[in-house]
Design a protein around this nucleic acid. Sequence first.
DNA 1: GCAATTGTTGTAACTAGTTTCACTTCGTGC
DNA 2: GCACGAAGTGAAACTAGTTACAACAATTGC
Lengths: 336, 336
Amino acid sequence: MPVRERKRANLRDVAKAAGVSVATVSRVLNTPEVVLKETRLQVERAIAELRFHPSAAARAINSGRTKIIGALIPSLDNDTYALTIESIENRLGDFGLSLVVATTAEDPKQELRRAQDLVNIGVEGLFLPGVDHSDALHDLIERTGIPTVVISYFQPDFIYPTIGYDNQKASGLSLAHLIELGHRNVAVVHGPAASNDRTRERAKGVSTVCSDAALAFFETELSVAGGSTVVSRLPNNGENFDAFLCLSDILAFGVLFELQRRGVLVPEDVSIIGIHDVPASESVFPRLSTVRLPAQQMGRKAAEAMAKWIEDGTRPESECFDSQLIQRETTAPRQS
Amino acid sequence: MPVRERKRANLRDVAKAAGVSVATVSRVLNTPEVVLKETRLQVERAIAELRFHPSAAARAINSGRTKIIGALIPSLDNDTYALTIESIENRLGDFGLSLVVATTAEDPKQELRRAQDLVNIGVEGLFLPGVDHSDALHDLIERTGIPTVVISYFQPDFIYPTIGYDNQKASGLSLAHLIELGHRNVAVVHGPAASNDRTRERAKGVSTVCSDAALAFFETELSVAGGSTVVSRLPNNGENFDAFLCLSDILAFGVLFELQRRGVLVPEDVSIIGIHDVPASESVFPRLSTVRLPAQQMGRKAAEAMAKWIEDGTRPESECFDSQLIQRETTAPRQS
DNA sequence: GCAATTGTTGTAACTAGTTTCACTTCGTGC
DNA sequence: GCACGAAGTGAAACTAGTTACAACAATTGC
């Protein structure tokens, strides 16, 4: 005897069970106030009995709306995007929109694949970090006409609205701070530049601060371990440098830990500064000096802009939030 | 003159433009090999011209499938779930499924709301961390019949399959390690227990290790800062304890940093051990001793189980992965 | 040379909802 | 006692796809 595949009940089933028309059931679901109370209760009973749940797809097909927004982000592995994602998600929720996160591992191919996935799911909007994406992705967005907002980056003339911050300025702030403290010999530690325009911008921001500082760039994996690796490969325990400027707090942690492991005193022997201000930065020992990126404001605003774009079709303006130097304990004046 | 709302082209439009029937267009999309090459090219030209993109909702309504799986997780703020989520997402991708992540902030109300959202989106499956959820959520799952898999927890007789690890055993391992090193006076630092059954299990696992160790429990916020706070409130810089057993690596970092700030030597003066083995644990100074949770295997397996359940209807068996003591540098024999 | 098979395409019926329009009541106003 | 408007409901058309079935032409087999 085959198991009776009790398939999901649909509107028609409910209508039949309640002895009303499908239109009435639909009304009970959407505008219950126009239905006679008696009828409504009858329908509700049938709904409960049949364990009816309206199909989201069928709804979407009529309204043309899925209420899903997609976000492509490189990774969830580190705190870098967590706060932003969380505030986007929360704010989006206020508009009845949900966020779907897909990770790209900074690989253009995977980014395209995941974007395709998101489009297939039926996302109504797309968040993209940075402006550097494959032509194929731009094509896809252009073809589908999906509202797209760039975050973590600011470039007012870009094809999509950018709601973010000035990465150059952020890194400029941190270098200026080091210079003010008298540091001239600075190691700049950063993640993969080829695949990440935020990193490239920050590197550029550091290079263009007019100064007589000598900069040495070190590229490594974007992780705590990556930061450690840089220091471990340096001659003289890295003490040839006055300071380490890390283009991400995550890297700063790695640098800090590895220096400590080698007995180098921070900030007495060398200073360290990061960029981002992740939650842990305030707790490490010593507390990390850094430049705070406006992750939450940005996320909030980006979500609002997206919601508005989708609801009334008003394409948002690009917007730039300020970064802010947070001087804590890993930076100190240079010991002569 | 009003802006002509050029609405999205649909199958019918393409069919008309290409001079064929809708069925043929649908065939070009799904089984191009059965269509005459000439016809196919014609249709493809029309598709390109009209920038046609098939509606995911309309597809879903026919197949009854959205190919979306939902996951409810407390937070993305810390590394706790990142690796698991990432491996779930990756493995799910191999089956043509996408993951939607919704955060719950450990709040049953928000958990229910977000679950409702996921159901409305039309998720075909649901990942839930732990077994402790509101009746309303169970109700929702029961009503909708959505395949649900519990992760980060193991309890073979639970209403849903659990694919995870034994939290009691994990914390037991860490305490056993401390005891073996001669520590008897142990501070157990943990996150909010009321809202988190994994935490409760770990606390229990520690309590039930038969031993003559004296345990003191400290509950705090689940964050690096939370770990620091515990130490900062302790008399005598926390040195009344031989060791800190942190039920999460995140907390262990906070404890470590705060002890360092107070000049307490780790592991010479006190030992620290965590649970989880997040990426940073290997890089901190000193490197954190911990119990490695099988986050990636679990995520991978959970994704496979879910995919199988959805595809052929085979409800997965619960499965328990082993945790493993990772002895590094924050634990040492007790100095007498 | 005719039946059988294969290849290609179109018609129309499905999927599961929403929505328009028309209809029946019923209460009120005059 | 009848016109009028409002409330409540249903039939059918609509959303955008997939697919079963039928139709037809072009080969192939005998």
